[in-house]
Design a protein around this nucleic acid. Structure first.
Length: 1045
RNA sequence: GGGCGGUUAGCUCAGCGGUAGAGCACUACGUUGACAUCGUAGUGGCCACUGGUUCGAUCCCAGUACCGCCCACCA
């Protein structure tokens, strides 16, 4: 049955994938040789609700190439797939769904909600798996993992021990003091109402507004305010009864604990230590705060004086901690102004007492204090800001500026002498409607500033003072740094050893990124106020009085945490802690917390309640390598495949994931999770823009697979995967590689039509390399060996593009362009059988070598072209090398090829009709050339459209063909235009002479001959000699033409 | 502000000490026992700029100019 004209990808891909899966081709260890080394890749788990985007397609194509390549080479191979539960992202999807029916998560219980999330997982979790299958990913799906498997409320079918592993790690790290709980300023996402880590915050440039306000000094006190320029000359001197501060967040003034100035700032020296008044809120209850010094304020920025709001700004928090300034929380979880606690008057009075040093508050008391004036309570932070600005302005305490046309009021907004140029950069705020005469408006500096946003919610992050769990990263970072330092050193030294227990990051530059981040690592906030995730295994009771200020409780926390893997253990632990006099029970969901006490104050009943927070998704994905292999159980797979081999990932998750996996695996099992991290670049659109839904420039890999076939998409991504460079994907390129598939398909058709695929009943994988005698066959066998060597070298070095380009050049440029053409005249005659056998072998090698990149079409061709005992997916990867290269055959064929090239070129330039067969006259030819001609005459005549060769002198009106070792003439009397031939030869000669001059120059330079390596000098000499020979011939030909003309 | 990249043919990119390559696009011509998703031939480059090292630099070093990315607390 003759083959179709093209490969029908749409029809074949599903069928082939199905066949692979059914035969267990992707199972761990499939096709492994006896006693084989292992090779294991962990998939970067996509979000369970996700769908395949171009980045996934790229990432997984590379992994699949490595996996298939190793599997064919007989490694005991595992590509471990799975999905991530993706806390926020997944919860977001389900909440959005709920919103459609006007419901919210808080309308139901936690259990009901997480059940809905599990439903969602069931519904959409398979999508990405199916899509990866469309790509051809050869994962061992029977081992598909999920970061929430085995969670307490997981439905049937979601068993597994990932949850247990996560909990175990948390408990162990807690016991080792690597995890702690504390009230810290964290990034708070007001939309999802949860803390997030630094990495989940995106800095976005926005147009910022900075107001300047006057904080009156307490008791109407005044001081001499003096400003000087760089030379110390006084530029301003006046008496002030206030200190001017600049702020971008007026609403946080309510929580100010101090005003800070730089200790060296002489302008404010007279008032340091005095109190000033926050100019908001009811006048009779204005709070006073101290003016302090700290290194943080920059005297050249703003007014040089900074209001310190420890609970809502990271810098201020640092200042507050250093100077023992109270941090007053102003907002609730939605970042609206607090509406709880005692009325403002009461709270303000307490805060005032604190400021005056008359009173001290515990952390809890400070947190309970609501310093939001009654009229602002419950307002959104931006509404509150507006009100605050209005109030201050109305009261005349905003620094004003004259408009229009007037410079800003210099006396109130001092521009320090060192930065005189800063003034023009600042413009007055919103321009008022033009009115006659100058008029005063509040001075608002318009500056570009970076504002933190949640990477998921896109809302502005609010720094919030809350109780959170942290990993003490400083304690576990060192091994992760050392492992990569050692790995990179070995890589550099060329002595990299996969078994040495260190890790390298490729390309090298990404190692720098890794180092930089880890060397400056901050504590990692791992608690999230979400419902979807691993709930923190900590139960709280009340702390026993005598321990309130003990060493293990420096902040005087009232709660006593019991961190254990299970409720039962926590309960046991608590019982031991309280002793006989206390009745300890578990607090059931929704039950009120109630602590009853004995007469002497000792707890009588304690209800343990579980920490409601869940763990950061990346805490669990940080355990992906051991978790998917069954840890903490000593499973066979864990023993066999861990540490794994390569991690293939995008640079965007080096911090999120790679660094954390390194730290966590080293902390938990004291081994690096993989020896190599291959970091690939981003897939962009053809204009170089990052693909994003909002830009609408997303190329959907599924669409592309539909249109061009998975192989074409894969080959394109591979060919463009130059290390470390972003790649721009265009459809033209994909179409080009789809054509490449068609090309090899048709080469196979040719072979089939010529009976070159008859294997005479020999199982093809047993098909040996034929003992060819004909130069053409010996040559292509050598070329095949070269290709195999180059592909292996490229893949070993993770140079995927080199592998793809090598194959492209070999299959198209060598096999199709030349070998197939050469073979045509050989299909009858003495060498017919040998040529057929060689072609069959060469094509098999093409399928094998291409299979990791283009699995579908090659598998199909494999099946179509022989009785195969094994599918191609399990075919043996060849090991032949340079022993197959026949240098003599190589030289001969290269001579033949260049002769044909020359003739074709001359014909085309002389406008000889393509179909016209011409005789050729050999005017001179050395022995090698004669032999080469004799061996390959039918091929040369066919490909160069010649009609027999004679020896003799160049006839009149002939074109001259000069090749190494000889020259030919093609008589074109009447056809050829003498002038044109002259100009053609001249052009060729000119080019040649230019090259020769360069070569002569070099050889004429004694220093070159002295210093350059011998082989280079020798090569240069040879080139010159050959070139000069050719030039001589060209000159002779030109002279002849001159004689004729 | 700190760090890391990039600048090579019209476009997208390889190459990274021995005098420049691919794909696409473009031009001309189409023929042989697979292939028009094709064939053959061709056009097209002071390898960003300026210095330095070297016998020799697109490649190494230093600086300049643009472009891009990452990190960062200027109120």
């Amino acid at each position: 049955m003759p083959m179709e004209k093209t490969f029908n990808a749409a029809e074949a891909e599903a069928r082939l994938y199905d066949a692979w899966e059914k035969s267990g081709a992707f199972k761990a260890g499939a096709n492994a040789r006896e006693g084989a080394e292992t090779f294991c890749i962990m998939i970067p788990p996509p979000n369970v609700t996700g769908s395949l985007h171009m980045g996934h397609a790229f990432n997984n194509t590379l992994q699949d190439i490595l996996t298939r390549w190793h599997r064919m080479r007989g490694f005991d191979t595992l590509w471990q797939p799975g999905q991530d539960h993706a806390g926020i992202a997944t919860q977001m999807v389900v909440e959005r769904e709920l919103a459609l029916s006007n419901r919210r998560r808080t309308d139901m219980s936690r259990e009901e909600f997480t059940a809905l999330v599990w439903d969602q997982k069931k519904k959409s979790g398979g999508t990405i798996i199916d899509q990866l299958k469309r790509l051809g990913a050869s994962c061992d799906w029977s081992r598909n993992a999920f970061t929430m498997s085995g969670a307490p409320n997981a439905p049937a079918g979601e068993e597994g021990n990932f949850h247990d592993a996560v909990i175990k790690v948390f408990v162990e790290m807690y016991n080792k003091g690597l995890i702690y709980r504390g009230k810290r300023l964290v990034n708070w996402d007001p939309h999802f109402e949860t803390a997030i880590s630094d990495l989940e915050v995106e800095q976005v440039e926005v147009q910022g507004q900075m107001w300047h306000f006057k904080y009156p000094l307490a008791g109407g006190e005044t001081y001499e305010y003096v400003e000087r320029d760089a030379d110390g000359n006084v530029t301003l001197r006046e008496t002030r009864d206030y200190i001017s501060i600049a702020t971008t967040r007026p609403e946080t003034m309510l929580g100010d604990g101090a005003v800070a100035v730089h200790p060296a700032d002489e302008r404010y020296a007279p008032i340091v230590g005095k109190l000033c008044e926050i100019p908001v809120g009811p006048k009779e209850h204005r709070r006073l705060i101290p003016i302090i010094t700290d290194e943080y304020p920059d005297p050249t920025f703003g007014s040089g004086a900074v209001k310190i709001t420890g609970a809502h700004d990271f810098n201020d928090y640092g200042v507050a901690k250093r100077n023992d300034i109270p941090c007053y929380r102003l907002m609730d979880t939605k970042a609206a102004m607090r509406d709880d606690g005692a009325p403002y008057a009461e709270a303000a009075a307490i805060a005032m007492a604190v400021a005056k040093g008359e009173r001290q508050l515990s952390e809890a008391e400070t947190d309970a204090l609501n310093l939001v004036p009654d009229d602002l309570r419950g307002l959104d932070r931006y509404e509150a800001r507006k009100r605050v600005v209005e109030q201050i302005t109305a009261e005349g305490l905003a620094v004003m500026v004259e408009v229009p046309g007037q410079a800003r009021d210099a006396k109130d907004t001092p521009a320090p002498a060192s930065k005189p140029a800063s003034a023009p950069a600042s413009k007055p705020g919103p321009a008022p409607a033009p009115e006659p005469g100058p008029r005063l408006i509040p001075f608002v500096e318009q500056n570009k500033m970076m504002q933190p946003h949640g990477d998921r919610s896109k809302v502005v992050i609010e720094p919030m003072l809350t109780d959170q769990w942290f990993v003490d990263t400083a304690k576990i970072v060192e091994p992760a740094l050392k492992a990569v330092r050692d790995g990179m050193a070995a890589q550099e030294a060329g002595s990299f050893d996969e078994k040495a227990g260190y890790t390298r990051i490729l390309p090298e530059r990404d190692a720098k990124t890794y180092f930089h981040w880890l060397e400056n690592i901050e504590p990692w906030c791992i608690s999230r106020q979400l419902w979807w995730g691993h709930q923190i295994p900590v139960w709280y009771g009340i702390r026993l009085e005598e321990n309130l200020h003990s060493e293990d409780n420096p902040t005087g926390q009232v709660l006593k945490p019991f961190c254990r893997s299970t409720e039962e253990e926590a309960l046991e632990c608590a019982i031991a802690y309280y002793g006989q006099r206390t009745d300890v029970t578990l607090c059931k969901d929704g039950e009120p917390l109630f602590f009853d006490v004995h007469e002497d104050g000792y707890p009588k009943t304690v209800k343990l309640y579980r920490d409601p927070d869940v763990l950061d998704t990346w805490f669990s994905s940080g355990l992906w390598p051991i978790g998917t292999l069954g840890w903490p159980e000593e499973t066979e797979e864990l023993k066999k495949y861990f540490p794994t081999d390569v991690l293939v990932t995008g640079f965007d998750i080096i911090f999120f994931w790679v660094a954390r996996m390194m730290m966590m695996q080293l902390a938990v099992v004291d081994k690096v999770p993989f020896h190599t991290v291959y970091v690939h670049a981003l897939v962009r659109d053809e204009k170089g823009k990052k693909m994003s839904k909002s830009l609408g420039n997303v190329l959907d890999p599924l669409d592309l697979i539909e249109e061009y076939g998975a192989d074409a998409v894969r080959f394109t991504l591979t060919a463009m995967a130059a290390m470390g460079r972003d790649l721009r994907l265009s459809k033209d390129r994909i179409a080009g590689y789809r054509n490449f598939g068609t090309k090899i398909w048709n080469a196979t058709r040719f072979a089939e039509m010529n009976g070159a695929l008859r294997r005479d009943g020999v199982a093809t994988e047993k098909l040996q390399k034929p003992d060819a005698t004909h130069t053409v066959n010996r040559w292509i066998i050598g070329e095949t060996a070269r290709a195999r060597i180059a592909v292996d070298e490229a893949l070993t070095a993770y140079r995927f593009n080199d592998a793809a380009n090598t194959l492209y050049a070999f299959v198209w440029g060598k096999v199709c362009d030349w070998y197939v053409e050469f073979s045509k005249p050989l299909m009858d005659g003495d060498h017919a059988e040998e040529t057929r056998a060689t072609m069959a072998w060469v094509l098999d090698q093409c399928y094998i070598l291409l299979h990791p990149i283009m699995p579908f079409i090659t598998e199909e061709l494999w099946a179509l072209t022989g009785e195969r005992a094994k599918m191609l997916v399990h075919a043996d990867w060849p090991a032949y090398g340079t022993e197959l290269i026949d240098e003599a055959a190589d030289r001969e064929m290269n001579w033949v090829i260049s002769l044909i090239d020359e003739i074709r070129s001359a014909r085309a330039q002389m406008h000889v009709p393509a179909g016209l067969k011409l005789p050729i006259v050999q005017t001179s030819l050395d022995e090698k050339g004669s032999k080469a001609w004799a061996n390959n005459a039918p091929m040369i005549e066919r490909l160069a459209r010649l009609d027999g060769m004679t020896e003799g002198k160049a006839p009149k009106g002939a074109i001259t063909i000069a090749v190494e070792g000889g020259s030919f003439a093609i008589p074109l009397e009447g056809v050829v235009d003498i002038a044109e031939e002259k100009s053609r030869l001249s052009r060729t000669l000119e080019k040649l002479e230019k090259d020769l001059n360069g070569l002569r120059g070099r050889l004429g330079n004694p220093k070159f001959v002295e210093s350059a390596p011998e082989d280079i000098v020798e090569e240069t000499r040879e080139k010159l000699e050959l070139g000069e020979d050719e030039a001589t011939k060209l000159k002779a030909a030109l002279k002849r033409l001159d004689e004729i003309g």
